[in-house]
């Protein structure tokens, strides 16, 4: 526990990011998640921890896995889950984020899960509501539950995070997953590298405690875990990479490049995958090497833990 006592409760009101969380907070959430992993393996029953509690899923951006897994997690815990998607709500009519927050707050939910396309938007919303808020992704800033589920996946295969060498590959610049993972893995004692074309590596990322590599061969040497990121075509303005063909040739993960890493290196991908862009199809489907579908399973457990930890009794 890095010299810090084991916690009985999650000590914060919100989960807005991994940055600033101490190892014991992270371990608390991971331990709780592990319990739910076991629970989900054993039975399909519902729990009633969050009976009569209302959670709102507020998604300003499209999402399949995150939204569904929050919804499923809430239902497994007995909570009433409401989904608000932007297409059909007043946000389309020009309501500001703060007004949306205050409106929802007036309905007295017990927790709000928010995804927004602007960095910091979830924090802004959290300042205007009385209940806890979980950040389900805010622009290129953070996506804490993804980092937690990645950590849980790593733990399930490698037993520990401290001392592992982890490479995060691809579009670091536009990735909230990268930032959350960097903070979490560093906090729990892993060595983190980022690999990608220099156009997709943000300035002074090394100050977050990572080593920067511009080619896969050097970057993947002795690596235990490879986290592949999606090339976020929708966030790009201007040519960050000349073509998908060229990107795949130099940064797409295939058998050949995988051989640079340790023989038992594990592949993670937050999804949705662009097959043939950042990862070879055959590799993505190789269940020995790729934990991509494990991650989805872990996602539900992690979100159960986060909901349980943040909803007030």
């Amino acid at each position: 526990m890095n010299g810090i006592d084991k916690l009985k409760n999650y000590p914060h009101k919100h989960l807005l990011g991994i940055e600033g969380l101490l190892p014991n907070s992270l371990n608390f959430l991971l331990d709780l998640s592990q319990k739910y992993v076991k629970f989900l393996e054993k039975n399909s029953k519902k729990l009633d921890y969050l009976k009569n509690k209302t959670c709102i899923n507020l998604f300003f951006e499209n999402s399949t896995r995150t939204r569904t897994s929050f919804e499923l997690a809430g239902k497994k815990l007995g909570a009433d889950m409401l989904n608000i998607s932007v297409g059909t709500s007043s946000i389309k009519k020009g309501e500001t984020l703060i007004d949306t927050a205050m409106t929802l707050n007036a309905m007295q939910p017990d927790l709000i899960v928010v995804r927004h396309n602007d960095a910091g938007a979830v924090k802004l919303l959290s300042e205007k509501v009385n209940c806890g808020v979980i950040n389900a992704g805010d622009g290129p800033h953070e996506h804490p539950t993804q980092a937690l589920l990645d950590a849980l996946t790593i733990l399930s295969r490698k037993k520990t995070i401290a001392g592992l060498k982890v490479a995060i590959c691809g579009d670091i610049m536009h990735s909230r997953v990268a930032r959350s993972n960097i903070h979490l893995l560093n906090t729990l004692g892993a060595e983190v590298r980022v690999i990608g074309p220099a156009t997709l590596i943000p300035k002074e990322i090394d100050s977050l405690g990572v080593k920067v590599f511009y080619n896969m061969k050097d970057g993947l040497k002795d690596i235990d875990i490879i986290i592949m990121l999606r090339l976020q075509l929708e966030r790009m303005s201007g040519s960050f990479v000349p073509s998908i063909r060229e990107y795949f040739r130099f940064y797409g993960l295939d058998r050949e490049k995988l051989n640079y890493a340790k023989p038992d290196a594990l592949i993670l991908h937050p999804g949705p995958m662009n097959r043939g862009v950042e990862i070879d199809t055959e590799l993505a489907d190789d269940l020995d090497r790729s934990a991509i579908f494990d991650q989805v399973r872990m996602g539900v457990a992690v979100r159960m833990a986060c909901l349980k930890a943040l909803v007030k009794k």
């Binding site: 290129p140 953070e142 930032r179 943000p202 002074e204 990322i205 100050s207 303005s237």
Partner: peptide, 21 residues
């Protein structure tokens, strides 16, 4: 500086904001 909203560097990178060099 297109779409940039903060000084490019450690702070902008950490906060996930587009930088202006």
């Amino acid at each position: 500086s297109k779409k940039g909203i903060a000084n490019e560097g450690e702070v902008a990178t950490r906060l996930g904001l587009t930088g202006i060099p």
